[in-house]
């Protein structure tokens, strides 16, 4: 295994470069994202935030034309090592997307989807599964709203509820790292507030990396903050420091709204 990766970092990248065909989207990204806290990732549109998130759980590979070099360690393991099992990587890492994407199944089947895939050997009984499902739904503050219609289609829920469900379905497989790509941007202000509150609730139990375009959200809801520009990491530090006393001019320009 890779010795130099310190395990108190949830994500450690070393000279990560990524190309979409001939277009380079990430340049020498070196990041150490601490375990157990919420880190926000900000930057103008197209700077590579989603690209970075998607390389951490190796979902970019499904596009045949993506090329990567450098290394990414998650919880001290290089996820590109040949002996690493992709499914185990994905099990450790949960991802939440911009648009809520519940599967066209019942609420119950959505929450237990990951569990049924990964924990087949456990042979959990129906009542054990029900407990697991209830715990997950309670944790995302959704249980009271859906407990009477667990067999309804998840796609019939409101967007806010769908997004909460998308978070809930990650929990039963006990991931260590949650990646969230603008999880609130499809929601109205009330929904945004509710989901933000939920993310804050999950703090401490999971390492969370959240992409956002909302400066106030980044400031309110994260402990560390990363600012990216044109595929490069410009600044990374305590959220307070990044916002109050940015070291780089680009950062302050962006925070004050001088970029798109």
């Amino acid at each position: 295994m890779n010795e130099k990766a310190a395990t108190d970092y949830a994500i450690h990248t070393d000279k990560l470069n990524l190309w979409y065909g001939t277009f380079q989207a990430l340049f020498d990204v070196d990041l150490d994202i601490k375990d157990g806290i919420i880190t926000s990732l900000i930057g103008p549109s197209g700077c590579g935030k989603s690209t970075f998130l998607r390389s951490v759980n190796r979902i970019n590979e499904r596009l045949g034309y993506v090329r990567i070099n450098g290394s990414i360690d998650v919880m001290g393991k290089n996820i590109y090592d040949p002996d690493v099992e992709l499914l185990q990587v994905r099990k450790q890492i949960g991802m939440v997307f911009q648009r809520p994407n519940p599967l066209p199944l019942s609420i119950r089947d959505n929450v237990l989807f990951g569990y049924n895939i990964h924990m087949r050997k456990e042979r959990a009984s129906r009542s054990q599964k029900d407990e697991i499902m209830e715990a997950a739904l309670r944790q995302v503050l959704l249980w009271d709203k859906v407990k009477d219609r667990l067999n309804a289609r998840a796609t019939e829920l409101s967007l806010e509820e769908q997004q909460k469900l998308c978070i809930a379905r990650l929990l039963p497989v006990k991931p260590t790292l949650l990646l969230m790509d603008e999880p609130c941007s499809a929601l109205d202000p009330k929904g945004t507030e509710a989901v933000e509150e939920l993310i804050w609730e999950l703090r401490g139990q999971y390492t969370i990396l959240i992409v956002t375009h909302n400066m106030a959200q980044a400031r309110r809801a994260s402990e560390e903050c990363i600012f990216m520009l044109m595929g490069k990491v410009v600044e990374h530090g305590q959220t307070q420091d990044v916002f109050v006393t940015p070291k780089r001019k680009e950062t302050s320009d962006y925070i004050e709204g001088r970029y798109g």
Partner: peptide, 16 residues
């Protein structure tokens, strides 16, 4: 496509 990505992200194989 979003359904497929959702599944893959939860660690489902292509066949699952």
């Amino acid at each position: 496509h979003a359904f497929r990505e959702a599944c893959w992200n939860m660690g489902a194989t292509r066949w699952q």
